[in-house]
């Protein structure tokens, strides 16, 4: 009986979204009067015992080189073995979580809730609040099976730390031969991954052309932010399509979302409305985005944004 948290391995390190999942899983373990353990697959370079500070008592490792190649089927089988004694299994609802958690649910016949945004209500069963309708509503979903799987939305639960160190133990499980071979990877070097960023600066068609994107990237740079864009901007290739946020793009929930020259169409809002603070800069006072914003400036981005960047530089510099 325990809570098992899948720790997503990002080239040797535990991804931030998984630290949120660990903190969340540890809180659930406390609620249920049990312990929280983690599992990480593939080579690691991090001191795993330090993961105790997120509330894990134990970290299982499977340092088989074959697991450096991601195949959801292979990963699922390994995690299923490790989860034999777990009542609750937690994933981040990130890219790896979306690939593995559903497979594991079907394999173990364990009810799954993806996109969880809060701790479960365990007063009468096990009910998890999740995002539905692209952030426009929540559903409270009850899991009716003894074994339960929850995939926590990134940026929905704060990382909590305590004292403590985790026992690290290698797990002896068979690793199948992967059917899916990863043959190439192309990553945008140096950038903050959009789904993990605390601050996101985003530009829309109001910026007129890719040559003006310095406005967005300069502001992002002083804030240590990731950059994003509206769909038409990606469609005309002003920006790469992995920056496109919204209903048909990536859904994000940063602490701060700054929208520059974006009208705020409902399909755009669907991907960003979970942001904690929204700032809108638009020259049209009627732009729908202002209705969803916390702060705004009605004005020309080309004049306003450089001043904002300068003012932040001043504060950061002092």
């Amino acid at each position: 009986m325990s809570v098992l948290i899948f720790l997503d391995n990002a080239e040797g390190h535990v991804r931030k979204a998984s630290l949120e999942a660990a903190s969340y899983g540890a809180a659930i373990a406390k609620q249920l009067g049990t312990t929280a353990e983690g599992i990480i697959l593939g080579k690691t370079t991090e001191n795993l015992s330090s993961l105790g500070k997120y509330g894990l008592t134990k970290v299982h490792t499977v340092a088989n080189d074959a697991l450096d190649n991601f195949d959801a089927q292979v990963f699922t089988k390994v995690i299923a073995e490790a989860a034999a004694n777990a009542d609750v299994i937690i994933f981040s609802n990130n890219i790896a979580g979306k690939a593995i958690a559903p497979r594991l649910s079907a394999r173990l016949k364990a009810g799954l809730v993806t996109g969880a945004v809060a701790l479960p209500d365990t007063s009468n069963g096990f009910t998890v609040k999740k995002n539905v309708f692209s952030g426009k509503a929540f559903a409270n979903v009850t899991i009716n099976t003894a074994k339960k799987i929850v995939a926590l939305n990134p940026n929905s639960y704060s990382i909590t730390t305590t004292d403590g160190s985790a026992e690290v133990a290698g797990l002896n499980v068979t690793v199948d031969t992967a059917k899916v071979q990863v043959t190439a990877t192309s990553k945008v070097e140096g950038d903050v991954p959009l789904t993990e960023a605390e601050i996101v600066v985003s530009g829309g068609r109001g910026l007129k052309g890719p040559e003006n994107w310095g406005l967005v990237t300069d502001l992002a740079k002083v804030l240590g932010a990731a950059t994003a864009c509206s769909r038409p901007v990606a469609d005309v290739h002003w920006r790469p399509h992995h920056e496109h946020v919204g209903q048909t793009g990536i859904a994000i929930a940063p602490n701060l979302y700054i929208a520059i020259g974006i009208s705020g169409a409902i399909q755009h809002l669907a991907g960003v409305n979970r942001s904690k603070t929204i700032v809108v800069i638009n020259k049209d006072p009627e732009a729908p985005f202002f209705k969803a914003a916390d702060y705004g400036i009605v004005g020309d981005a080309f004049e306003v944004v450089p001043k904002i960047t300068e003012a932040i530089k001043k504060i950061k510099g002092s």
């Binding site: 009810g111 609040k129 929540f138 559903a139 979903v141 009850t142 899991i143 914003a293 705004g296």
Partner: peptide, 18 residues
């Protein structure tokens, strides 16, 4: 394996500070 118990709408925003 699961059932939806209820839905909620997010609380309304306080309004934009311009």
């Amino acid at each position: 394996l699961t059932s939806i118990t209820s839905f909620d709408l997010p609380p309304a925003k306080a309004g934009v500070k311009l």
